[in-house]
């Protein structure tokens, strides 16, 4: 319990530090510091409201304190382009990013764990001699390029799948859940999810393989063989169960990292998600939106880093039953 509390405190420290870095980062941008929140196309009343809300006419220290008060309340100001609250925009696109990330990372990890365990078991075989370089090569490929190749083949070449976006134009849905489970959405999801899954599978595969190779050397695996237990049971319930611990941690870390790392895949497929919102906002100098999207991506990353720590504690009895 004590160690969990320490971990939690460390997480809060990191959150605070990253928010602080973000505050100063957005004062690095060229031009007038009030530009972080105020655009000349705003009405006079809007400008005044934002000046007050973010203390833009006051000292840097006061601005910093106000910034924190606002961040804690999820208040990031108003988007320059759409003139809508940043928070609303982010929550509109978040389901798209989560659907894409969770689906592809789940596929990648299931595939990676199974194939990694299999390659460890078939150590020294042709499957390994071909498989390992292939996986390394896939892992070396830029995500956006994988996406471009898939697009060129399946969307433009064969015309089987849509070339971008999350839904066809003009579609109407009664709820977000309806939209996310519609065949139209799923058809749009296939290519970006496949791209991301292809990119992500290398890590769990290689990690699982090397863990399995270590675990297969352990005495308890030899003992299980001496007990005459069936080979499948030794591989799955003893070797794989132990080898899986670090992979589960990597899954949580990967989930956190890929929400932010999705920027390129979301851009290639014009996927209306958090990463693409960030890229568009930065490109069009929509600072409040960029800041909000960045903070959100960081929040997810940091929380998932913490969850990964916790998961390890829960799953390993050596830690949980200390």
């Amino acid at each position: 319990m004590r160690s969990v509390a320490i971990r939690f405190a460390q997480m809060l420290l990191v959150l605070w530090a990253v928010a602080t870095i973000l505050f100063f980062l957005f004062r690095l941008m060229p031009g007038d510091p009030t530009l972080a929140y105020i655009d000349t196309t705003f009405t006079a009343e809007q400008q005044e409201e934002l000046m007050r809300q973010f203390g833009l006419d006051r000292s840097l220290a006061e601005q910093y304190l106000l910034y924190f008060a606002n961040v804690i309340q999820g208040e990031f100001g108003t988007s320059f382009r759409s003139k809508r609250p940043v928070f609303t925009i982010i929550f509109e696109v978040l389901p798209n990013t989560l659907a894409l990330t969770v689906l592809s990372i789940t596929i990648a990890y299931i595939f990676g764990v199974l194939v990694g365990a299999w390659l460890a078991w078939r150590r020294g075989s042709i499957a390994e001699a071909v498989g390992i370089p292939l996986v390394l090569t896939l892992r070396a490929a830029p995500e956006f390029w994988l996406g471009m190749v898939l697009l060129a083949i399946f969307a433009f070449g064969l015309g089987w799948l849509p070339s971008g976006g999350a839904n066809s134009a003009g579609m109407q849905f009664s709820s977000t859940f309806d939209r996310l489970t519609s065949p139209d959405f799923l058809r749009h999801l296939i290519l970006p999810a496949a791209t991301l899954a292809l990119y992500l599978q290398g890590l769990p595969l290689l990690l699982m393989r090397s863990n399995m190779l270590d675990v297969l050397q352990e005495d308890y695996v030899m003992m299980a063989r001496m007990k005459g237990l069936p080979e499948w049971r030794i591989l799955l319930l003893h070797a794989a169960r132990n080898a899986l611990l670090p992979v589960v941690t990597a899954f949580a870390l990967g989930l956190g990292a890929s929400v932010g790392g999705n920027v390129v895949v979301e851009t290639v497929f014009s996927w209306p998600g958090l990463g693409r919102v960030l890229v568009d906002a930065v490109a069009s100098s929509d600072y409040p939106l960029a800041q909000g999207a960045f903070m959100f991506i960081a929040l997810i990353l940091i929380v998932m880093n913490f969850v990964a720590d916790l998961l390890y504690t829960v799953l390993d009895p050596r830690v949980s039953h200390g």
Partner: peptide, 28 residues
């Protein structure tokens, strides 16, 4: 049957000792 050198590594760390006992009783 076999009694290993150091049972620290010979018992699977992620299962309860009793479960490892019943595993062999049931399967073998």
């Amino acid at each position: 049957s076999f009694v290993p050198q150091s049972s620290m590594n010979a018992l699977d760390p992620v299962y309860r000792v009793g479960a490892q006992m019943t595993e062999v009783l049931r399967l073998r």
